[in-house]
Structures are given as structure tokens and as C-alpha cells.
Design a protein around this nucleic acid. Structure first.
Length: 574
RNA sequence: CGGGGUGUAGCGCAGUCUGGUAGCGCACCUGGUUUGGGACCAGGGUGUCGGGAGUUCGAAUCUCUCCACCCCGACCA
């Protein structure tokens, strides 16, 4: 491509509404432009990157035995009513009507469509397993789109769905996809981390996320390097502490006027927060439920919602409810003598002689002990892990390496074992060896294609701009010409080299604009092109061409007569 | 959805409090001088001051209203 005939839409100044570096650089380097909130146009340079990501994903999916299909973006409401998600999905589902007043949605995901297809096309176990994928535009009406294409409303996703005769086959394909994803992110040149995950609204049981670690990431991940454990904090577990061994002391009641928070009570009684508990009253499926966690911990709402006694979505009891049913106000609630189910977090349950509210206004208790003073419904894991917790896989090991740290990540891939949730709802059945109808277990596997472009930039940039991994660079090589218009020698050499590199099948940008060198250098760096060649009279007189790698500080001179071999090694070695 | 904020040229902003000819830098166009790290000189045009309604002799500026966008929180590739 010749720069003089190509849209180099670079910006000198950072647009004011771009918050994170990848968004800023995607605008500045001329990859995208915003049309409306969460909606972006991909410019030629951005589209080149996007297509390269797609190509790698497509190659690895094909290699893993998946077959590409293309489903409609617009889907009839009936399908979603059949799966039950028309009512469940909420405002994120963009719904509309056609001229006949029939209801449709713009697909945020395609379980319904593919399961519908499978139910009509798959008749026998002999056809299984089957894995279909597509690379397609999705729409989710996000409450708050942000960070450019990182959380856009319209975005491009690779989604795959597999169908099986039994769970063993599902497990097998899950492992194959697992490997395919590892290959994809490795080839993309991304530093990524595998993370155990919650299945969320998609449903199912086993699930893993692939995260690109970056400070700007929206997800918090608990990581233990020693046991190779990483989990989304909404799921992460710490090792349950051993029960305390202290001897029980006598219960003491304290007057604690206007003391309502853990911080205040621990200061007032001069004990650390981990010797206190907080009692949270939430709405249960049948009346109120008390959740007790240690004073220094936070409730994990995802874990709480999964408990059979607790209503989902989680709802805290209002002051009005507390007054009506328990005749207390928040600030001095405790587990002692509560006449509702008390569910205790494992860490809180290990405490001896702890401090809690007395269920009387302005009073707290100390030296409380579970077995003596309370009635416990159940001990479960309810809390968010914090940095420094011991890894759940550590057993008795509490060495430093087994401690959890909290890192931030960008979710770029997610794989699920769905089971029969959708195949049951939509009647996707086939015949087994015995001629008996079975409901096919399913898996589903997503990759955020457009998000990967942003994630790659988050991981690969400097103060001058993007530093693309070669595999997804819009151009692999840029030829910067100095005096292209004036110097016959420069023009001849640049044109010849440009043609040569093109013939090698390498994406090359010939900067033949009549610009000053500084502008061309700055643009090449901003756009992150991995290899730069500079052709000018100065070098030609010495018989050399300057070469510089985007990720190296220094340039080197390559003699003209060695150019071809040098280029071949330079470009393949990266 | 709740809370906060912004809307003036393609981009970054000033002007609004205190009503009176719509401005600055960059970018853009023309001519010239330049050409190894975002040049200089001269000339040029940029606009529904987010939309609508109102107050006023007069509104970017005051009032009302609608809209868009951004940031902070609960959801997700």
C-alpha cells in the first residue's frame, strides 16, 4: 500500500473522551472512529488488524475440527421465548418489531439459533460430536459502554457451539477448545492467563475465562503462582482457616452509643477488625436470612446468590424490613439470638471470642462463641477473597508462594460446558446406539475479536504509540522515504524495494508522501509498524538503508547488497 | 438505572459569572522557502455556539425544556 493513496487518519492530540491508553491510541493511530456511544467505525488500518485476528482464530478453529457457519444477527422472539431468555435477559437485549408487528431481537449471542438448527439437522449419534462456529457482529445494549471497543455495544465475536452424545464427549471437545484457545492467544502474541470463572447468565457448570492481564482490566482475578490457580474474584476461594483453639471466655456486653461500623467498634474496643463479625440481613426465598462474615471481609454477592435459601438477585433488607421483622436497626445486629436462619462464612466460623452487635440498639457483645451462644444454619464460603489469603489448593501449605494476589484482567475468551440447559428447553435430541432419543449436551466457546485488538494495545505500547505483535500488525514493514519527490535515486530504490517486499507476500506500507521526515516517523511509530526501513540520499550514497525495529531503541544500517537476506531474517525472527 | 459533569470550526480549548460584530492553537486550502524527528512566511475558509421554546431593542451568555456525550457505582466477549 502506498501512503499517498491510503487513509492515514492519525491525530496529534488525544481526544478528550478517551480514558484508557488503548482507546486513545486506537483513535490517534486512525484505527477507529466513534459513531455514537458504543458504536465504532473501523478505518482501514483498524480493519487490517481485525482481519488478522480473525484469520488466526479461523485457522485454529478449523484446525480444531470446528466448522464455520454464519447465523442471522436478527433473531425472532419466539426462539428466545422458547429458551425462556426473552423474559430473563433484561435490557441488554435489543428488541424491536418489524412492519408486521412481529418481535425480534438483535442477537447478543446465538445459543437459541444454533440449538434450533441442531435440533433439526442432527438426527443420529453417528453425526456427533459437532462443533459450529461463526465470526459475527453482536449487539448488547450495555448500560455503560466505555473504553472504546473494549466495552462496545456492537462488537465482533467468535462464538462456537458443540453438540455431543454424552458428557464424556463434551469434556473431550472442551479440552480441544481449551488447547485451541491457548494456541490462538499464543499466536496473537498476547500474555494471557487462564482463569476459573462463574457461568453467569449463559448457564451451565464448568467454565474458564482467558484473560489478558492489564492494569486497565475490568475484572479482578485472584492469582496463586505456586499452585497455578487463578480465578475470577466472583468465584475465587481461599483456604478455609482452621477453627480457633482459644478457650471460651465469658460473654461481655458493652454500651456502644452511636457506634455502627466495624471500624468504629474495633477502635472503641481496641481490637483488630478480624476479631469482629458483621451480620448482613438479606432477602431470602422465604423471609429474611442473616449472613455473617468477618469484620475485615466483604460479602461476595455471586456466592451468596447461589445459596438455596437466598433470593437472587441479592437484595439487602431495608431498614423498614429490619424494624418490622427483627425490631432492630443496622449497626448493632449480631448472630446471637436471631430468630432467622444464620448462614456463616467459613472464616467467620473459625473465630473464637469474637465481637458482634447485640441486636439491641447501641450495644455490642464480646467473647462471643458460636457453639455456646448461637444457632447456625450452615457454614459456607460467602466472602470475597483478599490479597494475602491462602490459596484454596494449598492444603496445609501456607508458604508465601501459596498466597493469593489480586490482579486485573481483560476477558478475551470464555469457554463453557453448558450441559443440556438449551437442548432441553429447545428439544435438541438425537438417537443413540439403541435407537433411543437423547438430549444432546452442549458446550459453548466465545472470543471477543474486537476486544482483542484493544487488549493487544493495552499490553504493547510506549509513549510514542502502539507496538504491534507482528502477527496482527496492520503492516509488517514501513518504508519511509526521504525526498521521494525530488530524488530519482530514492524513488527508484524505494519503488523497487516496495515491489520486492510485496512479492514476498509481506504487508508493506510505502510512505511516499511529500511530508517531512518527522511526520512520517511519528506516524509509523504511532501506528506501531514492527519494521521500519528508511531510504534517503544520505544512506544511498553510503550504500546502506537504515533499519529499525519498533520495539528496539537503536537503528542499524544494512548494506544495499545484503538487503534481501537481512530482511528475510529480520522479518521472520520476530 | 442512580450520582456527577460536559456540549462553541475536523481535534484540543477560551469566551458564559457581568447580554452588545464568535475567538485561539493545531489541522485544512493556495503560493513560496524548506526537507533525517511533528518547519517557516504570506494569504484563505472553517460555525445551526447540541435542539426547541421563552425573556430582551439585542442571547453562545439569562430562564424553561428536550437531546447527546463523558466520568463514578451494580452487569459482561
Amino acid at each position: 500500500m502506498r501512503a499517498s493513496q491510503y487513509l492515514i487518519a492519525t491525530l496529534k492530540e488525544t481526544p478528550a473522551d478517551a480514558e484508557i491508553i488503548s482507546h486513545q491510541l486506537m483513535l490517534r493511530a486512525g484505527l477507529i472512529r466513534k459513531l455514537a456511544s458504543g458504536l465504532y467505525t473501523w478505518l482501514p488500518t483498524g480493519l487490517r488488524v481485525l482481519r488478522k485476528v480473525e484469520r488466526i482464530v479461523r485457522e485454529e478453529m478449523n484446525f480444531a475440527g470446528a466448522q464455520e457457519v454464519l447465523m442471522p444477527a436478527v433473531q425472532p422472539a419466539e426462539l428466545w421465548q422458547e429458551s425462556g431468555r426473552w423474559d430473563m435477559y433484561g435490557g441488554e437485549l435489543l428488541r424491536f418489531k418489524d412492519r408486521h408487528d412481529r418481535e425480534f431481537c438483535f442477537g447478543p449471542t446465538h445459543e437459541e439459533v444454533i440449538t434450533n438448527l441442531a435440533s433439526t439437522e442432527i438426527k443420529s449419534y453417528k453425526q456427533l460430536p459437532l462443533n459450529f462456529y461463526q465470526i459475527q457482529t453482536k449487539f448488547r445494549d450495555e448500560t455503560r459502554p466505555r473504553f472504546g471497543v473494549m466495552r462496545a455495544r456492537e462488537f465482533i465475536m467468535k462464538d462456537a457451539y458443540s453438540f455431543h452424545v454424552d458428557d464424556a464427549s463434551l469434556e473431550q471437545t472442551y479440552q480441544i477448545m481449551f488447547q485451541a484457545y491457548t494456541n490462538i492467544f499464543t499466536r496473537l502474541g498476547l500474555g494471557f492467563r487462564l482463569v476459573e470463572a462463574d457461568t453467569g447468565s449463559i448457564g451451565g457448570n464448568t467454565s474458564h475465562e482467558f484473560h489478558v492481564l492489564a492494569d486497565s482490566g475490568e475484572d479482578a482475578i485472584a492469582v496463586c503462582d505456586k499452585y497455578e490457580y487463578a480465578a475470577n474474584v466472583e468465584l475465587a476461594e481461599a483456604r478455609a482457616p482452621a477453627p480457633g483453639t482459644e478457650k471460651s471466655k465469658d460473654l461481655v456486653e458493652h454500651d456502644t452509643p452511636s457506634i455502627e461500623t466495624i471500624e468504629e467498634i474495633s477502635q472503641y474496643l481496641k481490637v483488630s477488625a478480624d476479631k469482629t463479625v458483621k451480620t448482613l440481613i438479606v432477602v431470602g426465598v422465604d423471609g429474611l436470612v442473616a449472613l455473617v462474615i468477618r469484620g475485615d471481609h466483604e460479602l461476595n454477592t455471586v456466592k451468596a446468590e447461589k445459596h438455596s435459601l437466598i433470593a437472587a438477585p441479592l437484595e439487602f433488607a431495608t431498614e423498614q424490613l429490619l424494624k418490622t421483622f427483627l425490631s432492630i436497626k443496622p449497626g448493632s445486629i449480631g448472630p446471637v439470638g436471631l430468630n432467622i436462619p444464620v448462614i456463616v462464612d467459613r472464616s467467620a466460623a473459625a473465630l473464637k471470642n469474637f465481637i458482634c452487635g447485640a441486636n439491641q440498639d447501641d450495644k455490642h457483645l464480646s467473647n462471643v462463641n458460636w457453639d455456646r451462644d448461637t444457632v447456625i444454619e450452615e457454614i459456607v464460603d460467602l466472602r470475597k477473597v483478599i490479597a494475602g489469603d491462602i490459596c484454596a489448593r494449598a492444603g496445609d501449605d501456607s508458604s508465601d508462594g501459596a498466597k493469593l494476589s489480586i490482579k486485573r484482567g481483560i476477558e478475551v475468551g470464555h469457554i463453557f460446558q453448558l450441559g443440556v440447559k438449551y437442548s432441553t428447553a429447545m428439544n435438541a435430541r438425537c438417537l443413540d446406539q439403541n435407537g433411543k432419543a437423547i438430549t444432546m449436551p452442549m458446550g459453548c466457546y466465545g472470543i471477543g475479536i474486537s476486544r482483542i485488538v484493544a487488549a493487544a494495545i493495552e499490553q504493547n505500547h510506549d509513549d510514542k504509540g502502539i507496538i504491534w505483535p507482528s502477527a496482527i500488525a496492520p503492516f509488517e514493514v514501513v518504508i519511509v522515504t526521504i525526498g521521494y519527490k525530488k530524488s530519482e535515486a530514492v524513488r527508484a530504490k524505494a519503488d523497487a524495494l516496495y515491489q520486492k517486499i510485496n512479492e514476498l507476500g509481506i504487508d508493506v506500507l510505502l510512505d511516499d508522501r511529500n511530508e517531512r521526515p518527522g511526520i512520517m516517523f511519528a506516524d509509523a511509530e504511532l501506528m506501531g509498524i514492527p519494521h521500519r526501513l528508511v531510504i534517503g540520499d544520505r544512506g544511498l550514497e553510503k550504500g546502506v538503508i537504515e533499519y529499525k525495529a519498533r520495539d528496539k531503541a537503536d537503528s542499524e544500517d544494512i548494506p544495499l547488497n545484503k538487503l534481501e537476506q537481512s530482511l528475510a531474517t529480520l522479518i521472520t525472527r520476530s
